[in-house]
Design a protein around this nucleic acid. Structure first.
Lengths: 200, 200
DNA sequence: ATATACATACCGACCGTTCGGTCTGTTTGT
DNA sequence: ACAAACAGACCGAACGGTCGGTATGTATAT
């Protein structure tokens, strides 16, 4: 992809991660990219199109985690792999965004909510992502039970839900409180404690 | 409070629950209230002031749940009471909003995120709310353990975290998927399954 | 009883600014 | 020479907010 276009995409992404679609102005995009209106509209037909391309190019790609890459050896390895992957993906994104944005006011939820209004079919797509995410966790739980690693009267899906929802919930709170940095440590501690609860 | 002012507040709340601060225009507020620009600025000095009053009058009041009203008899009663209370508070709000807004595109998260930018000291306030929320759950867990109702190697705080975070996480997903109606049932099922896991 | 004075509630034309977007022209790479 | 890459003056629409004015009610003085 053209370097200028990618630059616009990344700078804009960092802006949309900080405030809502409407709050980000063309003026700001033009200034922060160091380019001009002419350059912008050479690559994009509108601000909305830019946003849609950002959702497609970055957001949805990041959301669609490839769960097959996580360990199948044990359930604990699986969720440790998951955390490590998410953290490293986040770090990689931060690098790409460069020093453009401060870690503490990154809020991918506002991006998602804007996408619900601006990206056609976003709701359906996110529904699928959620469903396959839960299915992958369920599978990992199932393997863990089968191998005798964990044991519980909770259904596989319920255990999967506990992991997935605590992940979302904790992430949401840490973002709102501006202490995203503690995600890895807090999530791992909580998951480990629950894991010990269902470990045989 | 003056009826017109309250009417403006409620209509605007329903709008801010559907889209971001910037997306809601004065024109829309004026039209939906059936009043005029003049009337609006008679009661509020600006759109921002209106928003701040909405956060103070409705949002923060709803967030600050009085946990002392929930059963202390057993931990299960406690979280059942919690769910029932939240659901009824939600229903009450829907009634106040009248037929203004559709249940499925109510999104209080965007309201919260806007408040982070527009309501001075919101982050700190929400931090306190979160902290006292967790503390209340921790207390309920502690009682449950003391009475011999539940037993676990997880700390009280960790168990509290499981409940609080799953609540947030599930709520977030259901809102994104437009199926908030299933909250009560799904949350209760999941919590019950976890409860049975730690029940003696 | 009624005229005067004042306050509150409300209206909508209007204002300056900013918005996303366009258009014409210039630079640059091949 | 020619197209792609960019610059920035410019545009109409929409924005939040203002302002002069009206209608209604109510307290007060005569």
């Amino acid at each position: 992809m053209n370097a200028s276009k990618e630059h616009i995409l990344l700078v804009s992404l960092s802006l949309f991660l900080q405030k809502s679609f409407k709050e980000v102005t063309m003026k700001e995009i033009v200034e922060k990219t160091g380019l001009s209106k002419g350059a912008f509209y050479h690559y994009f037909s509108s601000k909305e199109e830019l946003f849609i391309e950002i959702i497609r190019t970055y957001f949805l790609k990041i959301m669609k985690v490839d769960y097959s890459r996580f360990s199948k050896k044990s359930f604990r390895d699986f969720y440790c792999d998951y955390i490590n992957y998410i953290i490293s993906a986040f770090e990689k994104l931060k690098t790409e965004l460069g020093d453009i944005s401060d870690e503490d006011d990154i809020n991918y939820f506002v991006l998602a909510f804007d996408a619900m209004r601006l990206f056609p079919g976003f709701k359906e797509e996110i529904k699928e992502v959620h469903a396959s995410e839960l299915a992958s966790w369920e599978q990992a739980v199932s393997s863990g039970k089968a191998s005798g690693e964990i044991r519980s009267d909770m259904t596989d899906r319920q255990i999967a839900g506990m992991f997935v929802y605590t992940n979302d919930g904790l992430g949401l709170r840490l973002i709102m409180e501006g202490r995203v940095k503690q995600m890895e440590q807090e999530m791992l501690t909580l998951w480990d404690s629950f894991y010990n609860q269902i470990k045989v």
